[in-house]
Every structure is written in C-alpha cells, then in structure tokens.
C-alpha cells in the first residue's frame, strides 16, 4: 500500500465526516450505526434483530452496534431514538408495542414519528394450556369457563401485551370470565403455565412451539384463519369460529425504524440492506422454525400494515376497557 495515499484518504474521510454531518448515501455509513433494541437480550425481538442485522451489515458496508435498551414496554428506547438526530445512525429495532402507547397513556410518540425500514415478520398467537387443564379444544374450554366463572387462570403480560389483546379479542365475541394473572413477559408466563401457576396462556407460537413439541403444554387453538405448517394438527380459530375471521390474521410484529426526516437516500440504502437481510437463509430458517410469518414490508405497504394494525388493536383494547384513552382522541379510525 502507498502510505501517503492512505494518509490522504484518511484525512479526506475525516474532513468529510467533520464537515458534512448530514451524511450522503454515497458515504453512508461513515461510522458505526447504533441499533437500539426495545426488548431485553435473548428475547424474541432481540433474536430476530441479531439474526437479520449481520446480513444487512454486509450490504451496508458498515457496522451496526446493537444495544438493548429496555423498560417502559419499549417506550424508553423509542424516546431515545426519537431524541437522536435523524441521520440514519440510530435505528429503532422494535416490536408492535409503540402503536399502543397513545391509548395506554405512555406518551404520544409512536411509529408515526418513524419511517419503517422493514417490517420483518409477524407472529401468530396460539392458545396453550397446562397439560392437566380439563379441556382440550376451544369449545370445551369455553364451556368449562362458562360453567366455572373466574376459576380458570389466564396468563397475561400486562395491558397491551399480546395475551391481553388476544383475551380481549376472544371476549369480544364470547362471554369468558377468567382471572388474569400478570407476568413480566411471555417467557416467565410460559414457565408458569408449565408449572401450573396459570391454566391457559395466549402466547406467540414462536415462544411456545418447543414446549408444545416437547409435550410440556398442550395447544388449544391457533389464533389465525388457517392452520400453520409448523403445527399442522392444531385447528385455527377463524375456521372453527368464523365470527372471529374479521380480526384475523392478527399478531405481534418486529420492525426496524428510523426517525422521520432521515435523508431519503439513507433510508433507501437501509431499506435495501434489510430487505436483502430478510432473504438470508439464516433468517428464513429461524422464522420458519419458530412459526413466524415473514412480511419484509417497507414504504407504503409497511405504513398500511401499521395503520391497520393500530386501528384494529387500539379499538379492541379500548372496547375491552383496558385503554386509558380512546383511540378517537388521536384520530385513529375504527376498523
């Protein structure tokens, strides 16, 4: 290598880095990109992001340093990224939760302040029960609960979590009086289900699938319109109870976002990198094994996905009496 040339190149990059803080796509990224993960290390959001990002890095030609910033159902991380410069050097790696912040009274910053880089995948909820529960199907469960009101313990992860939305969804069409026992995440709730501290848990398929395959818990019904390839024997709620079909498919999702106002060419580069990352073999295998549905949406389709999700879910929890503010106040239309 030619030394003076190297030095010159270094100085050049340095000066461009200094004088042009708003990076242009041709140089982007000139430094490490921070990826702020809303949920803790080892969780499903974390796993998804750490699988897809190394592939996106290859295309970006830069490093993405991923950090977990937990707390406040993801609101801490969301606010942090919102407070950074919209230069594409801070990515928000999150789940569905911010779309509920407004109605849950957790501030007024949600994904409308962010541009979706990629809505990577969607989870499918499933109702699972302790092996000793005196019912095996959705119909039997409903009958048992109606005969023994408040006796059956449903695991939950706090208002706005997947279990609470699924429970609200079920209650919107069927009279179900159950006792909700809250846990701080679906992992601990699944553990409690296996130990019999709760009887039923509306979980995400990806989190529950290994325990189902191992026979530690039993599946009751899949909250979707059609059975999944990962567990073909489990009936789908939309098929057995068509009154629910209008809500489905519904499920939590994972996405990568940047703050609104990020230069378009930077967004384009990120969108491209993550779209390619989502096509990688590792990612497809991970999603398939865990029963997630790959979406890989960006641009307009991603925006539509988010608005539809927000409208359906906020109204569901508002009608169930779980919300602190009506979606109407924020101009969220009823589905």
């Amino acid at each position: 290598m030619n030394r003076p040339l190297v030095k010159f190149a270094a100085i050049l990059t340095l000066t461009t880095g200094l004088t042009a803080p708003a990076a242009f796509a041709q140089d982007y990224p000139v430094k490490e990109i921070q990826g702020i993960i809303q949920w803790g290390a080892g969780g499903s959001t974390d796993t998804v992001m750490r699988t897809v990002t190394p592939h996106a890095e290859e295309l970006l030609g830069g490093k993405v340093v991923m950090k977990n910033m937990t707390g406040g159902v993801g609101a801490i991380a969301t606010k942090f990224v919102y407070a950074q410069k919209p230069d594409g050097y801070t990515l928000l790696m999150g789940a569905e939760n911010p779309l509920l912040y407004k109605v849950m009274g957790l501030g007024d910053i949600d994904y409308s302040e962010f541009t979706p880089v990629n809505i990577l995948a969607r989870g499918v909820p499933i109702l699972v029960a302790n092996n000793d529960a005196p019912f095996n199907t959705f119909a039997e469960m409903v009958a048992y609960i109606q005969a023994n009101p408040n006796e059956v313990k449903f695991g939950s992860t706090g208002p706005g979590g997947v279990p609470s939305v699924v429970t609200a969804l079920l209650k919107s069409k069927t009279d179900l009086q159950v006792t909700d026992v809250p846990y701080d995440g679906d992992g601990p709730a699944l553990t409690a289900l296996q130990g019999g501290a709760v009887d039923v848990l509306p979980a995400v398929l990806g989190a529950a699938i290994e325990a189902i395959k191992g026979g530690r818990i039993k599946p009751i019904v899949l909250i979707d319109n059609a059975p999944t390839a990962a567990l073909p024997d489990v009936p789908a709620l939309g098929a057995s109870n068509p009154e629910y079909a209008e809500y489905l498919p519904w499920g939590p999702f994972f996405g990568v976002f940047v703050k609104n106002g990020t230069p378009e060419d930077v967004v384009a580069k990120l969108v491209d990198a993550y779209a390619k990352g989502a096509e990688s073999e590792d990612f497809i295998k991970l999603m398939g094994d865990r029963g997630y549905v790959i979406e890989s949406l960006s641009g307009k389709p991603a925006q539509d996905f988010l608005s539809k999700w927000q409208s359906l879910t906020t109204w569901l929890i508002a009608d169930a009496g779980l919300a602190k503010a009506s979606p109407e106040e924020f101009g969220i239309p009823r589905p």
């Binding site: 190149a9 270094a10 340095l14 880095g17 200094l18 000139v30 430094k31 490490e32 340093v65 950090k67």
Partner: peptide, 21 residues
Amino acid sequence: TVLMPSGIVPEAEILAAFGRM
C-alpha cells in the same frame, strides 16, 4: 462497543477512517 457521548471529538468517524486505513 459502548458508544460513549462523543461530544467535540468525532471519534467514531476517526475510528471508521482508521478502520478503512
């Protein structure tokens, strides 16, 4: 890779430049 506040020294850019060098 703890990204400390960089303030007046653009160390991330310098680091990246070194990386390229």
